[in-house]
Computed example of a mutant assay.
Amino acid sequence: MTEGNFVDYVKVHLESGKGGKGSIHLHREKFITKGGPDGGDGGRGGHIIVRGNKNLWTLLGFKYTRTYRAGHGGHGSKNRSSGADGEDVYIDVPLGTVIKDSETQEVLFEITDDQEEKILLEGGMGGRGNWHFRTATNQTPRYAQPGIDGLEIDLIFELKVLADVGLVGFPNAGKSTLLSVLTSAKPKIADYEFTTLKPNLGIVEYRDFKSFVIADIPGIIEGAAEGKGLGHYFLRHIERNSTLLFLIPADSKDITKEYEILLDELRRYNPELLDKSRLVVISKSDMLDEELIAEMRAELDKDFKDVPYMFISSVAQLGLVELKDKLWSMLNN
């Protein structure tokens, strides 16, 4: 999936169908010249329904279609015949899509299961025909109900990526490179910050035909929780990951401080993110000799007492098998 094809935020306009009119009709046959009322009911207007689809990974389908209108209900007719219901409109979205009201920003619900359906807008009810209004004193009513108008609303569809592991780190920490060597994904890789502006997903193939999904989250910067550097757009994707992999380059000035800054941004955005399992990975370790790694371990053992850490190199393919084993163990615990 290319970066330009990853769409995770759209605003859509929805209109449900209008209900059909009830019929005003009096029964007539060859030998019945003044029969009673037999006008049928109008059909209901079409609903607009959102449906989860596990085969979708992005909201790309909404890039060119932002307005959806359901069909109107048919009018009632003689012999108490009801009008046809308006055609429902089904909108397929990827799992992890959050539906919000565009005016109030209120979260209405979220779609997390395949084929899960929710009615976004109900169609208008059809009007009742004059058959319903007959009484002992008014046996030939010559009126019926009109159909109820449909509804209109503007909604926001916001995708939060569903992945087992989320890569968290500062810009240019090597997240895209790690994703490219662990999976068959082909993210954009360059030696400047914010090369990645959209999450990239990849499937890690493990032993015995097992696999898990890993997401390369765009780089977080200090102040991201307040929206700095598109922070809110990046951080929301971390909410769906069950395990967080903090990637910090070996040439960082202070590995512990960098980890604490990342952790603090997650805490300020959503404290519940700290309940997820965490793994600290020191990347670009091919630049280090064994003596330097031993010195760093002595310091990191003090700072990371409750969080596991390990050294890897994506370019030199060092420690990647051990990394897969560790992630698989964490995901299944």
Rank of each mutant, 00 (worst) to 15 (best):
D113A: 12
G227H: 06
L273E: 01
I111D: 03
G17K: 09
F304G: 07
L179H: 06
L26V: 06
A298V: 10
A185D: 05
L323T: 07
E122T: 09
L288R: 00
L230E: 12
G147E: 04
K210L: 14
V161F: 04
R207Y: 15
P218G: 10
I312M: 03
N138D: 15
I32K: 05
G19Q: 03
S180Y: 02
T195S: 03
N172L: 05
V307I: 15
L59T: 07
P171R: 02
Y143E: 08
L120Q: 10
D114N: 14
K100H: 13
S81M: 14
F31T: 13
F62W: 09
A144Q: 09
N55D: 14
I203E: 14
P249V: 01
R66D: 14
T67H: 14
V89R: 10
K324N: 10
G129D: 05
T137D: 13
M296P: 00
D216M: 08
E272V: 04
Y143K: 08
R278A: 08
I293Y: 15
D289N: 12
M1N: 08
Y90T: 06
V280E: 03
E103Y: 01
M125Y: 13
I189P: 04
L245Y: 04
L178G: 00
F212P: 09
S329Y: 12
K18M: 09
A70D: 10
D164C: 09
V168D: 00
S77C: 05
K284N: 08
F157E: 10
G46L: 04
A250D: 11
T65W: 04
T67C: 13
R134N: 08
S16V: 01
G150V: 08
I32A: 05
L178H: 01
K210Y: 10
E110C: 11
I248L: 02
L263A: 04
V50M: 02
G227T: 02
H27M: 14
S329F: 11
V12C: 04
G229T: 03
L155W: 04
L331E: 09
L230G: 15
F234T: 11
R69G: 02
K198M: 11
F109M: 12
I214C: 07
S180M: 01
V93W: 00
V89C: 07
V107W: 00
G52N: 02
